[in-house]
């Protein structure tokens, strides 16, 4: 059976365009609004990444941190996050959903319980920033067993030898970190270099869908169209912060922004 994430990539291949993947933090700016944002942007995105907040993150830049702190201040927890995902998944326009976060929250919840709950509410994939290969082998297997795609990460610092091993253990989707950075920094490498790295990864196994994230904005997105998918995170969190500051409705603002991003890559 084909996973919903795989189906999304098939669609992209047929339409000859990269997938648009957005990242928002669950509970930002509050629980109700974050579900509304998720539903609203689903009109344009292909896969939705949803962050589960952790207050000592190792790879989040300031924009995602702001979103995270807002969500934590609102008292968000995994129980509420799973409920929200369940609600979202009932929505007719819902897209494949990937939960993303740090291992402490999963560890605290209990690995097995966490994955079981993911399956129950309809989570399609998981990204765990600080559970690198090979330490994630058992957890990735557990995900696979429960039809959840465990997304392996590859960075510019990853050696070719390691890349091959990671890809061997990867599922439908692989995440290429564009540059040596936390999220939300300006792209400090050229699109050409990112695409060159992307091709190196693709050549190892052309069947894997390799998406690129970190530093992707309205300005940079069109230069990376050749990739299988593009993740926009900080730019979106930043827009939520901005809309709160100017007392605009983030739902409307985000819908417009995501539509704009989509138009840049089709």
């Amino acid at each position: 059976m084909m996973n919903r994430i795989d189906l999304a990539f098939k669609k992209g291949q047929i339409e000859k365009r990269p997938l648009l993947i957005t990242y928002t933090v669950c509970g930002d700016p509050n629980k109700k609004k974050s579900l509304e944002i998720l539903k609203s942007v689903s009109e344009h995105v292909d896969i939705a990444e949803l962050g589960f907040p952790f207050n000592c993150p190792q790879a989040d830049g300031p924009d995602i941190q702001n979103s995270t702190y807002r969500a934590i201040e609102n008292g968000i927890n995994m129980k509420q996050i799973f409920e929200l995902v369940k609600n979202y998944k009932r929505y007719k326009n819902s897209k494949p959903l990937i939960l993303m976060g740090y291992y402490q929250i999963i560890f605290h919840y209990g690995e097995k319980k966490f994955v079981k709950k993911c399956k129950e509410v309809g989570v399609d994939g998981l990204i765990v920033v600080d559970l690198p290969w090979p330490d994630n082998k058992n957890f990735a297997k557990l995900c696979k067993k429960n039809s959840i795609c465990f997304v392996q990460l590859i960075a510019p610092t990853t050696t070719k030898k390691r890349m091959k091993l990671i890809i061997k253990d990867s599922h439908e989707m692989v995440y290429q970190i564009s540059m040596i950075s936390t999220t939300g920094k300006k792209l400090k490498v050229s699109a050409k270099e990112i695409i060159r790295n992307n091709k190196i990864i693709k050549r190892i196994n052309p069947k894997k869908n390799v998406v690129v994230g970190f530093g992707i904005t309205k300005k940079t997105i069109s230069s990376l169209k050749e990739c299988d998918g593009l993740v926009v995170g900080s730019a979106i969190c930043k827009a939520i912060s901005a809309s709160l500051k100017s007392r605009q409705n983030p739902v409307i603002k985000l819908n417009k922004m995501v539509k704009f991003l989509k138009n840049k890559i089709i």
Partner: peptide
């Protein structure tokens, strides 16, 4: 070999970018 003392303390829970460095 994974950096754990007593099988459970420590380890290397870091982002992929920092693994090789």
């Amino acid at each position: 070999k994974n950096g754990f003392y007593g099988g459970k303390f420590g380890g290397n829970y870091v982002a992929e970018t920092a693994i090789q460095p």
